[in-house]
């Protein structure tokens, strides 16, 4: 009867059955709100982002926040040890997370983290990649698509320039990195479904 919300940002991933679903959600919401605020602050630091209309900023953040967080926290997923360290400091093995009902989403997150981790990006490269991730988010609801496309083009150029100048002998890294964008989209959809399922039927 325990209520399970096994997200690495959740300080209390397993709640007793006596707690109401709303209480469990409110507690989880308090855990992820600071992380979402940090993504908003990060977005504001992207050159050109604040030139977009506020409506379009909100639309990009709505569809891109989870994807940015997935990149930011992919180091919490230890593919070698097959374990995830939550932000509360506790480490959960893959087996224990499976017992908590984490299935294909968890596998996809490990897969993504392993692929991204293997690229060995520097912190500034990772930050620029996160900026590309954010402006590459779902365009539904965007009013000025041209402005978002222009910003995306500028950021992709900057990322390509940074990566290729540091690794002139490796022409494969940049295209490999861009291939992670559709992976993130798929993860985002899967993750939304999982959270909505909890909201509808905890």
């Amino acid at each position: 009867g325990a209520k399970v919300l096994a997200c690495p940002l959740n300080a209390c991933p397993v709640a007793p059955a006596s707690r109401s679903s709303q209480e469990v959600w409110d507690s989880f919401s308090q855990c992820f709100t600071p992380a979402v605020r940090e993504v908003v602050e990060f977005a504001k630091s992207i050159p050109g982002f604040q030139s977009l209309s506020q409506h379009d900023q909100v639309m990009l953040l709505k569809s891109g926040t989870f994807q940015v967080l997935m990149v930011r926290f992919c180091s919490l997923f230890d593919a070698k040890e097959r374990a995830v360290t939550f932000l509360n400091g506790q480490t959960y093995s893959l087996a224990s997370l499976r017992a908590l009902g984490m299935g294909s989403l968890l596998d996809a997150m490990f897969d993504f983290s392993e692929k991204l981790g293997s690229m060995g990006l520097e912190p500034d490269e990772m930050a620029l990649f996160m900026a590309v991730v954010l402006v590459s988010a779902d365009r539904s609801g965007i009013v000025d698509v041209g402005a978002v496309e222009q910003l995306q083009e500028n950021l992709i150029k900057a990322l390509r320039s940074l990566i290729t100048s540091r690794r002139p002998d490796d022409s494969t890294l940049f295209p490999k990195l861009l291939l992670r964008l559709p992976d993130l989209r798929t993860l985002n959809n899967h993750h939304s479904d999982k959270l909505l399922a909890f909201r509808i039927d905890p």
């Binding site: 605020r37 908003v40 504001k44 909100v58 709505k62 569809s63 909505l196 909201r199």
Partner: peptide, 27 residues
């Protein structure tokens, strides 16, 4: 439930974080 970000409360948090910045700038 056709807009996950609304139903998960994400949009509200995002708007407040963006608006907070606007209010600070106005001050």
């Amino acid at each position: 439930f056709n807009d996950p970000a609304n139903n998960l409360g994400l949009e509200d948090i995002i708007r407040k974080a963006l608006m907070g910045n606007l209010e600070e700038r106005q001050e």
